[in-house]
Amino acid sequence: MLRADVRAARKRLTGRIRTTPVFHTSVNGPNGQVPVTLKLEYLQHGGTFKVRGSLNAMLAADPAADRVIIASGGNAGIAAALAAAALGISCTVVVPESAPHTKVAAMWSHGAEVLWHGTTYAEAHRYATDLAAERNALPLHAFDLPAVVAGVGVVGLELEEQVRGRPPILVAVGGGGLMAGIAAALGRRRQVIGVEPEGMPILRAALSADRPVEVGASGLVADGLWASRIGDIALDVARRYGVRSVLVSDDAIAAARDYLWREFRIVVELAGAAALAAVQSGVYAPPAGERPVIVLCGANAELGG
């Protein structure tokens, strides 16, 4: 995955996605106010950065696809359904039984066929792969497909233009696609830091083992919806550009999400608040004069959750 791939994705996506804004502010930290820049990616179409990747993959497909199939616990399915609808393509999303109703309803609202299979993302993905072969459809991956990673990496190119200097960029790690895309876009121009829940440290485990490894979920993420291993692309990019992992507790993630609503009236899902939790809990402490960039990546929270 190279910067050139991300730049090519940006050309394909011009006019089809939102260039999401940044917001310079200060947030509460362990020892007082901390200057930060928030990248408001939760304002993207569908409330998720993943629509960038789905659109790029469909536009780059050769031959052009008329049907796509993807496995997803939520946002990747919403993104694929939205992108397919925009391009006039049929979309099927395979979800695990524990997929949130709110996210399934969003997939339906964009015209997707939704099929339930298994209790984990891994089980749903295996079924989706077989189904794509059976139906001669384009198989999409939520985070481990070059065109998907390149598409979401356009976030990094936007930040390069929106934020002066070379501040570090804190990004939540689910399957690693957003982290990998941003790191591929920026190379060593800026430090990218992956923020993971303590209950699912898939990037840290892979960096330690020097290969993707299965990690059993616990706490807030033990719902079958998060990836249980880092993507191969994400691990390759993380090693190449020195991406490191910091871990945040469930309590810190929940507190960061509550803080965003209380102070800014920003509604994000738990994953969307993970990067902010790293600063507020002190696991990432910016040196004096540094204003880190925090990517708020998803807004598809359960209503009342």
Rank of each mutant, 00 (worst) to 15 (best):
V34N: 06
G74V: 12
A60F: 08
S54R: 06
M200R: 13
A81K: 06
A4S: 11
F143Q: 04
L170Q: 00
N31C: 07
E134T: 15
H125R: 14
V27I: 14
K11P: 00
R244A: 01
A183Q: 07
A271E: 13
F264A: 03
I230Q: 00
V243L: 07
A80D: 04
V68A: 08
A206F: 09
G194L: 03
A76H: 11
M179N: 03
C91V: 06
T92N: 01
G111Q: 03
S208E: 15
D66M: 03
L82G: 00
G199F: 06
R12E: 02
A128G: 04
G111L: 00
A65Y: 12
I78G: 00
R10Q: 14
V195R: 02
A180N: 01
P286S: 02
H45D: 12
A184S: 13
I193P: 00
G177I: 11
A9S: 05
H125Y: 15
V268K: 06
G118T: 10
A183K: 02
A254Y: 12
V243Y: 04
A133K: 13
V6L: 01
L170T: 07
N300R: 03
G305R: 15
H24I: 13
T120A: 00
P63G: 00
V215R: 09
T129R: 14
G165P: 09
V22S: 08
V154H: 10
R239S: 09
E196Q: 05
S98L: 08
A4L: 07
R3W: 05
G77H: 06
A112M: 00
D250A: 01
A124I: 14
A185L: 03
R3C: 05
G73E: 03
S245R: 06
D130C: 00
V149H: 03
V192H: 07
V215K: 05
Q33F: 05
V154S: 09
P197K: 05
V173Q: 05
R291L: 01
L296E: 02
E123I: 09
I266T: 15
D130R: 12
V279H: 09
E161R: 12
H101W: 14
A4V: 12
L40C: 05
A71M: 05
G176K: 01
G156H: 06
I253L: 03
R164S: 15
H110R: 09
G181L: 01
A288M: 10
H110D: 03
G304T: 13
A137N: 03
A172D: 02
G153M: 04
T14W: 13
A183V: 11
V155S: 13
Y284E: 05
Y241E: 05
Y127I: 12
